[in-house]
Amino acid sequence: MRILSLIIVILTAAVLIYGTLDMPDCGNPDTPASQHVSPRYVTRTMEETATPNIVTSVLGDYRGYDTLGETTVIFSAGMACILILRKRRRQ
């Protein structure tokens, strides 16, 4: 079992490292990840949301529904913990 999981881990690591060979270098400003959506957030956050901290403006204004979903996840996790750990009368 331990040998099998070691083989699986090494194979997965080899595939993932092969995938990183084509990625842009760390710290490169011209990566595709920073070309598409985030320049609009950076340049227009002051006139649209009046918040200097860009992370806060994206979290609370542009992607507010995402934060609402996150709150739903935390609420259901708390409910699940209460339901699992409560003392049962019978038994």
Partner: peptide, 26 residues
């Protein structure tokens, strides 16, 4: 935009950290 770090992955991972702790609790 080139003189500020890309803020979008920070926001997504901020959500992911909180979801991680919720998963840990359950």
């Amino acid at each position: 935009a080139i003189s500020y770090i890309n803020p979008l992955p920070h926001v997504l991972m901020l959500t992911a950290i909180v979801v991680m702790v919720a998963t840990l609790g359950v």
